[in-house]
Nucleic acid binder design. Sequence first.
DNA 1: TTCAAGAGTTCAGAAAAACTGAACAATAGG
DNA 2: CCTATTGTTCAGTTTTTCTGAACTCTTGAA
Lengths: 135, 135
Amino acid sequence: MNPACLLFSLMDMRPLVHPSVEDVTVEGILYALSDPVRVAIYADIVGQECSQNCSSFLTVSDKAIPKSTLSQHFKILREAGLIRSERHGVEMHNLSRCAEVEGRFPGLLRGIVTAHEIQLKDQARAKRAAAKGKR
Amino acid sequence: MNPACLLFSLMDMRPLVHPSVEDVTVEGILYALSDPVRVAIYADIVGQECSQNCSSFLTVSDKAIPKSTLSQHFKILREAGLIRSERHGVEMHNLSRCAEVEGRFPGLLRGIVTAHEIQLKDQARAKRAAAKGKR
DNA sequence: TTCAAGAGTTCAGAAAAACTGAACAATAGG
DNA sequence: CCTATTGTTCAGTTTTTCTGAACTCTTGAA
């Protein structure tokens, strides 16, 4: 048994599970980011300089997300190795592990985040065009 | 109604659905490639010079896949915009649309395929190390 | 110490999605 | 026409995801 796990179980704490970089899988990353809500959350965390707590995502792209669902989304992002979550008092700080993942899979996350940005811009442009066509 | 669709419906054929490049989504691509079987199929199609039919994947990485399941996997890859399928007589030829997707999302597919290759190499190395430890 | 409020997690039932055997279509070659 | 081959569709089963309710843990005030 891992000494850290033993310590944590003796202390009756449930530490958050973070895979080590070598245990991160491509499938896990792709699966985690194949959900619109999760990729929006991840893009936000990557884009922000300071870490974000979970509840700041109770509404993502004009859609209300129940906090139990949000908790699952964060768990999936965390266990895919995409983010690191740390308790700070009553709330959680989430920060991206993109540097680590970049070391193992160069170009992967950059490609995904860039593609996501391109898609957002295209959607915004299409929306403007549709609005212009109506009036 | 799209004239091509009308023609096809009059002819009672069911053409395969291929989204145009601008309708391809990041989520769709990530979802399609988040499955081990599908990413293996896709990597194979990308790697091969000539197009492959579906049944050549009835066993993927030492695992037998029912052909109904395989048909669904190909449908998902196709409707994500990752491959183009063409009937040639009784069988289907599948070829990659990576050049088109590269035009819309530069670096995305390269990053994913490269990451997949890195992971395969790491797994092979870990396997060799485990075998060496045993004997 | 006790109480209340806030952030997140866990659980279990409901809803949605994936898997797959069986039946089916479509084609090529006898 | 008959058969073999390739792939699709359908429906029932299995698996996964979603989410409201109850719960834990921490902070801060009384």
